[in-house]
Design a protein around this nucleic acid. Structure first.
Lengths: 293, 293
DNA sequence: GTTCCGCATGAATCGATAG
DNA sequence: ACTATCGATTCATGCGGAA
């Protein structure tokens, strides 16, 4: 049995990050509060001040990330006065001056975009997943996110997407073990930089801003078991919970006590997981929501 | 019969645009040569000089566009030295200083992206479609690009129930006068800012940078019959040909003689089209390739 | 056990109203 | 004039109860 740790920290990440060691994190995956949102925690950062607010944090993130590590930043600019605001693209430019390499930009296509109708724009159905690195060579495990292809896979996936399927069962792999044999010899393809996922609107405990599949995909892609994952804007703890379930150590920082308590209640400080064995097979269980359409 | 004109111009658009009148174009749709590509035509613009090269052109485009018009710029930054280059986002910032409003950014999800494999990145399956405007109020015909909803796709699990169909049908039958509008409103949904299109359509020529559906969608959205469409980087003439087929006047500028001749051979200077009659119904015919999946 | 249907719920955006 | 709040608009998703 392998033991992984989940360290939850209550506080402002701009300060709390300073307690973390240099070059200690393999993957940073986070979704910071968007401009004008979460006014009760970070004071509702104004769009014009967003870059200035974020830079000290990204500076610390740069310090704690391993040279081989990756920083995935989930963000989207809002509309201000009829225009897309420029704080996101300005942030990219500013972070590059800090030393970050803007390696890639993934697109999260939100299949269930927020409804609404306006005279001069359509619904916003995508968000950015900016990939930053410290070095041009970084760790990446592409095989871990390969997707099945072909007619057989389509039929298989369609069945998996039935509303009556047992999702959590396949997640852990307990009920999935027997079916895994079916994937042997099946054709798989590397994914693209466009991810198709729906947001979770179901009102479980607290609504997370992104579905489990999102951090899971990047954790698969950029880390192995035993690695360290950091989410400086933990929220209700989606990233940390998923990382722990996948056998990765995790650190989550959250400024709001109620969110911190929420995460604490869900995530045990230590988790014991069976040693990885069928690594490739188990890791390549079908991701219906990430599958290219 | 309505007559629409296609004006093809051989030359550098930076110069040729000066011959066009102020505030005369309803829609500019173009895909400029990407950095380092088409080295023999525009001298192979270096990524670091891309903004500087494009700004005089965008300045002229600003001049010729009607205040109610729209400029759609299809562009994607290339990878340089392991990083996404910043010339596109720098261009956005620079164009705003020229007076352009960065209204929206559409995503073109290329369903059949080029195959390939790299050690540290996946296939690039999307491009930006940057929308710029001169004013916050611009012409937009959202109904022209509505997509069917309900059971349009096999992938969709939730099908419109039989009772729902009957209910809708009866509702349609009970109405009078605006019957058609009601029916359309019930069966169709407004699209999002993510477009799903394949890169090539089978029955089209292979030299085009984008499929017909791409300019067609934006021409539908931002223009009406008889309007003027401009493509300052015409290439083989996809935009002009599509515009003409849709009953819009078009201007195409191309610097390379072989491309110019190619477009000239395909596109007649004048086209006669039947006058629009069943406007609503004809405009809302389903576009399979644009459908969300 | 299925399949089907009703319903609540979102990192949204605009325009009008109020301070 | 400029900012804060609020109602109206709209649709994919999954849960729970019903057939």
């Amino acid at each position: 049995m392998t033991t992984v740790e989940a360290r939850l920290i209550l506080g402002d990440c701009a300060k709390e990050l300073k307690h973390l060691a240099d070059d200690s994190i393999d993957l940073i995956f986070t979704s910071p509060p968007y401009a004008d949102s979460r006014a009760n925690s970070y004071g509702g950062i104004k769009p014009d001040q967003y870059v200035e607010w974020f830079l000290p944090i990204s500076q610390e993130l740069y310090r704690v990330l391993k040279p081989s590590g990756t920083f995935i930043l989930n963000i989207k600019e809002k509309v201000v006065n009829g225009e897309r605001h420029t704080y996101v693209i300005e942030l990219i430019l500013a972070m590059r001056k800090q030393g970050w390499l803007w390696t890639e930009e993934f697109i999260w296509h939100k299949k269930n975009a927020y409804p609404g109708k306006w005279p001069n724009r359509f619904r916003d159905a995508w968000e950015r997943l900016l990939q930053f690195n410290k070095a041009r060579k970084f760790r990446m495990f592409q095989e871990a996110v390969m997707v099945p292809m072909g007619d057989w896979a389509e039929r298989r996936l369609r069945r998996l997407s039935q509303t009556d399927r047992i999702r959590d069962n396949s997640r852990v792999g307990s009920g999935f073990g027997k079916r895994v044999a079916n994937w042997i010899g099946r054709q798989k393809a590397y994914p693209t930089n466009v991810l198709h996922l729906a947001t979770e609107t179901k009102n479980r405990n607290h609504s997370a801003v992104f579905p489990d599949d999102l951090p899971e995909w990047f954790i698969r892609l950029f880390t192995q078991e035993g690695d360290w994952v950091l989410d400086p804007f933990m929220g209700s703890g989606t990233t940390v919970r998923v990382a722990q379930r996948m056998g990765r150590n995790a650190i989550g920082i959250e400024i709001l006590p109620e969110y911190y308590q929420l995460a604490k209640a869900i995530i045990p400080p230590l988790a014991h997981l069976p040693a990885r064995q069928l690594s490739l097979l188990e890791e390549t269980e079908p991701y219906e929501s990430v599958e290219p359409e």
